[in-house]
Amino acid sequence: MTTTTVSESTPTGSVPPAKRGGVVGLLASIGGQNLSLAGGLVFLLVLFGSLNGNYLSWDNIQVIAEAVTISGLLAVVQTVVIICGGLDISVGSQAGLASVVSAMAFTSTGSNALLGMAAAIGVGVVIGGLNGLIIVYGRVNATIATLAGLAAYKGVAQLISNGSAQGYVLNDSIFIFLSRGKIAGLPVMVWLLIVVALAVHVMLKYTDIGRNIYAIGGNDTAARLAGININKYLIAVYGLLGVVAAVAGILLTARTGSGQPVSGSEGLELQSITAAALGGCALRGGKGGIGGTLLAVALLGALENGLTVQGINSFWQNVAQGALLVVAVVIQQRRSGERAVGLPA
């Protein structure tokens, strides 16, 4: 009996994990998935940079960064929802509705930008919370619930805006600051993405809230038996998504100058989910991180901008994005090494 017990390997205490130094340690901490993403990003930058000299200019880099801000914000919160074992395909519609609400509230309050934004964020909280409530208490599959939301919230946005762009906000200094302002050489919008991403990263990585989110997505039964209030967490996570989607909607208003019910927000669900999946989120939950998602956002942005700079038909971008999403998930499934029988989970 004693021989069988020692044969396996040493107890945890006796071998302290060796500190790997320098480059190897750094690479190991980044992880294989992120390394291949970074490799892909460098490849794209070199490829498009060699095809067009202006591609790698500081101006164009800023254009790319600004272009990915909105989808990047949504990808960050989509990551949280996916880690929690859910999915939200109504993010684009939520952003569109928030955009319309921010502009209309701005106009009707006599050009009060802060009230406009507050109204948009309030709508975000309500819609996000509603998604969560439907999923948790209506026991509706997250994909179906938010597919319904995708249609319904877009419809609401179109109804209240009569289907057209609303208001004009670029006569207000706050909206101008959001759309054109710079802090330390970087556009304000990019700073917003950095702040939100950092905050979410800290939450996921360093707080007990983050631990519980990973636990719920990893094994909801075990999480429940460990005393985690799953319902509360799910509703809060969808609520958080609603708030950030509203922020994205406000940025959309600031960028285009008016409230946009549909244009600019359509397709954001695909972009955010693709970024999360490419970034290493397991679509069944429990795995993923903000770093990978941001790298994927950058990669998608670089690709989109590169194709535009090269004058390639923009319809190809949809093809490329769809293909990337499938490839990312196929690679994930291969890696997870489960038995390939029955329907995919």
């Binding site: 945890t12 631990r211 636990a215 990893g218 094994n219 039964t221 075990a222 038996l225 397991a282």
Partner: peptide, 16 residues
């Protein structure tokens, strides 16, 4: 199925 988070570390599983 009911207790462990298989993708997480021993540390994570212990401290939950």
């Amino acid at each position: 199925a009911q207790a462990l988070f298989l993708q997480r570390t021993i540390r994570d599983n212990t401290s939950l």
